[in-house]
Design a protein around this nucleic acid. Structure first.
Lengths: 337, 337
DNA sequence: CGCTGCCCTGACACCGCTTGCAGAGCAAGA
DNA sequence: TCTTGCTCTGCAAGCGGTGTCAGGGCAGCG
């Protein structure tokens, strides 16, 4: 069926071992021989069988991305960054969803992962989940996007700082009653929201404001959730003059809630998110931008480096910086509020 | 290192052949034996080596998604649908980007694809591109999202009809000078825009309006492109009263252009897109919705059926229906315009 | 001229699993 | 009792590469 290394060997008049060496650019192959082999291979449209190669060498030539979501902007953008790198490096990219993210028992086991990839990129999975931890402890090369774990290459933003920036921006505009739309009420395994909540509190405390628990709503990091959370905040007797949303998507939902009540973001209530989602510009939403695609690229590059396939990237892993983008959705509070 | 089938065989007191059969649920294995094997395997944390299994059986147990984009909403949403299905079926999902989409010479060759996947899902790639065509002609099981190709399982919307719906909606509201924001000026290999342009023209012709070439702008199917295209339309001496954008993302850009000039969609100019992008609700954009995630799921299910892994899906492949969603961005033209 | 050491090459034993084939055991039918 | 036909199991030959090892050729050196 498919053309095998043996046929190439025969066509080039050498042994299969030599073909293997020539094709992979190993040393100790005469230039003339190598050329003959390359020509024969090209001539026959030969492609090495990855299965055979994997079996024999133990290397899979592919890396896995383990992620709880695929369609959401943050995740697909990370994925896109990863793909650019793996594509250029000639590696296969295996996409492993985690199934229902609220029941993360679907994290692939180390054995399963190791059998199909040389390394894995873990996107925004909680490092203290037992299954994730098991993966990290296993000596499978891993690179992480979205949280910091000691002794593992990571890319993440400083969640607390990003939240502080956003909240401080609102404070600087003169807001004092600032609500926050967080993820889920129950202590989620995802730590992002806790860090961001801390940053929010820190910013308030810094100007002597006591965080008000009634000004916390929960939006599940989804647009719909953000919409509902904003609805709840608007039902308070004393409504906030500004809302810090822990993600742009929730801010989008919040802006829908505002519109439904005839309110305008940046006029009646200020709104800020975190992400730098492309749509934030569309609705003129202030936000704290994070370089998501390069984070994906960087995670992949770090992993390749760990695998010894490339020299290590110039920048050291760790925290990447965020940037406040002030747009029309944030303004000083109106008089009398 | 890893546990092999031999160790399981030994632990269960049977041959490797029996282990293989028992684990895969093949017939002709005594129930008691099967149970013993299963227990031994579980006990040892055994996972079959996919490389070995692939090499021996010729089946890879994985399917490939070939796509020009990953981060864009339509594509990541399709991908998400596909992943749900492959995940449930226990198949590996290989993600193959096409590199720079304007130079689609990076479409993987049949040989390369066949070596690493049992079948492929091709997302929104032009069926008349020579490399894509080569893939389709090869007898590798394939399923297509986004265009219709004879004798291949496909899911797509009727692009012309969707465009007709959108345009007719504007016409019904009383608009007569309706512009269109298309993809790229040069005859792109992607046929989507041609079909949608035809639908636009058809709708106009149906009410006796001659399509006006000066009312066509090009937005590359990106937000930025849509913004620029709308800018051009607004610079016309005789500006349109409504604009049909061939995608929601371009409509998002268009709405930014409007805002920058202090215009309001649905008041000064009507705007409609195609997609049903979740953000369309956020900016109150009228659109023609397509069921993107289920399209991905359906493509995957069809492929599994072709591979003989599942019974064929109930619904026949082909065109899926779209739904006009009328929102605030479309309204009757103001008097005097 | 013989020896050493370096290139280059081929033979061949795996890698871990699947599968065709053959054989054993056993029940049913002749 | 002897076939016949099942069910169940093991043997062993691959699948298509990789990597170790040994060997041949040849230049350099004593």
């Amino acid at each position: 069926m498919a053309v095998t290394i043996r046929e190439v060997a025969e066509a080039a008049g050498v042994s299969t071992a030599t073909v293997s060496r020539a094709l992979r650019g190993l040393p100790y192959v005469d230039d003339a021989t190598r050329l003959r082999v390359l020509a024969a291979a090209a001539n026959l449209d030969y492609v090495v069988s990855p299965s055979a190669s994997r079996l024999a060498s133990g290397r899979t030539g592919s890396i896995a991305v383990v992620t709880p979501f695929i369609a959401r902007w943050f995740f697909s953008t990370v994925l896109s960054g990863v793909e650019q790198v793996t594509h250029d490096a000639g590696l296969d990219l295996l996409l492993l969803g985690v199934g229902d993210p609220d029941r993360p028992s679907e994290v692939p086991t180390e054995q399963r992962l190791r059998q199909r990839a040389d390394g894995a990129i873990i996107v925004a999975l909680p490092a203290d989940d037992p299954e994730v931890r098991a993966l990290l402890n296993a000596n499978l090369p891993v690179s992480i996007v979205g949280s910091l774990v000691p002794d593992v290459p990571c890319v993440a933003i400083d969640d607390a700082e990003a939240a502080r920036k956003a909240t401080a921006h609102l404070l600087n505009l003169g807001h004092r009653r600032i609500a926050v739309i967080s993820g889920s009420r129950i202590g989620s395994i995802y730590t992002t929201q806790e860090h961001r909540y801390r940053g929010y509190c820190d910013a308030l405390s810094a100007v002597g404001i006591e965080p008000d628990p009634t000004l916390v709503a929960f939006g599940q990091f989804t647009r719909e959730g953000g919409e509902q959370a904003m609805g709840e905040l608007l039902n308070l007797t004393l409504t906030p003059t500004a809302v810090f949303c822990m993600s742009d998507e929730m801010a989008f939902g919040a802006s829908v809630a505002l519109r439904r009540r005839g309110l305008v973001a940046g006029v009646d209530i200020s709104l800020i998110g975190i992400d730098g989602h492309p749509q934030s510009e569309v609705i003129d939403l202030s936000t704290v931008e994070q370089p998501v695609e390069s984070m994906g690229r960087f995670a992949a590059e770090s992993l390749l480096a760990v695998l010894g396939l490339t020299p290590p990237p110039v920048r050291a892993p760790g925290l990447v910086s965020t940037r406040l983008v002030s747009r029309g959705s944030t303004a000083s509070p109106r008089d009398g509020r």
